[in-house]
Design a protein around this nucleic acid. Structure first.
Lengths: 128, 128
DNA sequence: TATAAAGTTTCCAGTCACTGGAATGTAAAG
DNA sequence: CTTTACATTCCAGTGACTGGAAACTTTATA
């Protein structure tokens, strides 16, 4: 199938699918006459896999790792679990960060009148 | 003072401070003889302000807005509060995203033996 | 005072994961 | 046969820096 069909089936944009070909993550066959990329069902499965992994916040490099594990029938689930646990840990960090950020900001908002006068504890805090 | 002193006082890197000058966010005076950037205490206060706002996850453009409010003695606190509330809302979105991501991943990890056998529910899920 | 070291300048390139757009070529539909 | 849709490559831009090179100034040391 052509690239737009592959894009549709995998839920990615044509640009993204082409990008994944450029960076040699999913390299489809080529139609010799037209030069068009020709995607197999297997290619689409890989695109799907990558799309999901990206949505799970895995980086492109991590996707590459997962993909090679995915394609290796003799891999151990230990490796995959390790990667995933590391990902969870990094998500936890981000959660912590954003949580304390939220706390601080909402504290400031609560102190701020939000009226037409210039006095503003938010700016005061920012300038300390 | 020179750039490295300003960087130290504001807790930013020299590269970052120079970058903020390049994008016309904090434009210091110049030593005519040497061409070196010459930072005033006021400049450092602005750098500090920006550093904090960035740590609060405000984008450069938002920092620019906040900075101009900060420098406008007649601004109303309403505007600042509005910006901050919007920032909180966007943080809430991110929190929600990461939270559900975390849930899904930890569910997968719990289903995975993590042993030396190839069977792996994480990859199974990713390939669905 | 000569030289070395530290600090600064500009400029260009790279990061990450795409996205947009132009110019051009091919395929399918009317 | 022409229009339209889809495809190709290549170049540039995003955000917010960061790294590095080459050249210059200032400061410290021998």
């Amino acid at each position: 199938m052509n690239i737009s069909q592959a894009a549709k089936l995998s839920g990615l944009s044509v640009k993204t699918v082409r990008y994944y070909a450029d960076i040699k993550m999913v390299e489809p066959a080529r139609n010799i006459q037209s030069g068009y990329r020709s995607y197999s069902n297997d290619d689409v499965a890989k695109l799907n896999f990558i799309g999901k992994a990206r949505r799970f916040n895995f980086s492109i490099e991590e996707c590459r790792e997962l993909l090679s594990l995915y394609q290796d029938k003799n891999r151990s689930s230990k490796e995959v679990k390790k990667l995933t646990l590391a990902k969870i840990a990094s998500i936890d960090e981000k959660l912590k960060e954003f949580h304390s950020l939220r706390e601080e900001l909402s504290h400031l908002v609560n102190c701020c009148n939000g009226d037409d006068r210039p006095s503003c504890p938010i700016l005061d805090e920012l300038s300390k």
